[in-house]
Design a protein around this nucleic acid. Sequence first.
DNA 1: ATAATATGATAGTAAAGCTATTATTTTTGC
DNA 2: GCAAAAATAATAGCTTTACTATCATATTAT
Lengths: 225, 225
Amino acid sequence: MELLMQSLKMGINSELYIKDPESSDLGKKIVEHSISMIDEMGFERFTFKKLGLRIKSNESSIYRYFENKHKLLLYLASWYWGWLEYRMVFATNGISDPREKLKKAIEVLTQNVQEDSSVSHINEVVLNRIIVDEYSKSLLVKEVGKEKKDGYFIVYKRLVGRLGKMMEEVDKDYRYPNSLASTVMEGALYQYFLREHFPSLTDCDKNITPTEYFTDLVFSTLKKA
Amino acid sequence: MELLMQSLKMGINSELYIKDPESSDLGKKIVEHSISMIDEMGFERFTFKKLGLRIKSNESSIYRYFENKHKLLLYLASWYWGWLEYRMVFATNGISDPREKLKKAIEVLTQNVQEDSSVSHINEVVLNRIIVDEYSKSLLVKEVGKEKKDGYFIVYKRLVGRLGKMMEEVDKDYRYPNSLASTVMEGALYQYFLREHFPSLTDCDKNITPTEYFTDLVFSTLKKA
DNA sequence: ATAATATGATAGTAAAGCTATTATTTTTGC
DNA sequence: GCAAAAATAATAGCTTTACTATCATATTAT
């Protein structure tokens, strides 16, 4: 667990926080309860003041960890993508057949988090839910210069890159591996979102999973010409 | 033009506005300048106060048209999807071959708006840009009950439904027409977004268009088994 | 035991996101 | 052309958000 924690933290851009939340009890509480509060009330209604009340800590203390709630969301997202990356690399490690490998990767990346595979203070099930609902709001863009933006999203970019590479391994001639990889990653979140909020816009339900849909999509597209 | 305007307005849920912005000069100005201001400063920095200043009108007057800026964004999005729907129906009307028809539909729906095909006071090129950057923020969801939500998105839902139907026409056995349709609609926005902000995550650039990518994706998936 | 560091309490500020009231235009119906 | 109605403007004010600053009090490290 400690080792996992280490490797997860590694990827997270240090500009996303002021003081590393893993370095103290208060920091961990901030992360833990921000996840549940964003899940309960949604990102826009969530404030540091409310979080302070919930964890019986001071608003100003929270500001010593995160510049603002948007950076906190970026931090949570980075953590989530890092965690998924770790699980994906672990699950596909040692599979030599490129098709099998890609299949496994898609499975891990498009499955929603069911079991409480809790790493310490972070509830991945709930985190997964807020990523589905709120991730797109982290992609704020007018605020920030190109270089900074790139830093904030390294983990996500690396993950999409890995998936794209696996697709290339399966079909060297396919012309859009990066687009397909980003489509799968974003599309999976979207299909879960729709299943929850606009079920008529998706075929995913109890019987059909996003994983099944995307596996079919990717392999009919990559099938050697 | 007037007829088009009529049919576009039709679809828009009347709960999205308090007073129909098409019914007055001020209303039109609100719509026109909100589009350019959101484009310039992003949705979160945009306020009714600033808009009032820009159009030399009063903040409180704007509140008589829209409850808040979120509803205004939903209104703009509805308008946009209605406009796209109109163009799609027009462009595919009379094509009898289902594959050709679907191809045309994908073309219209995934193309970014280049020419200034301006309908009256609405600049579709700029509107397209803000939809790419900000649409996901309209999908706020914790705030609002299911029924209301459904109303706000009827136009979008109808459009996805139409596209899904066309896919079914091409391949009756395909199991995920709605998911594929929603993936294409959302995915197109996302690919444009990435092309602009994170080009390494997409293969779309000057030479490869989202249209090309999605056309290939859809037709390799729907190819009769 | 003392100095450094982390946290808490309190206060304050500017802006956002409204609502209310009253005054002034503009429109329209006769 | 005039009165009534409707739309817009001006002004004020309220609550909440999103911070920043200062000072006090714990906690920890040396």
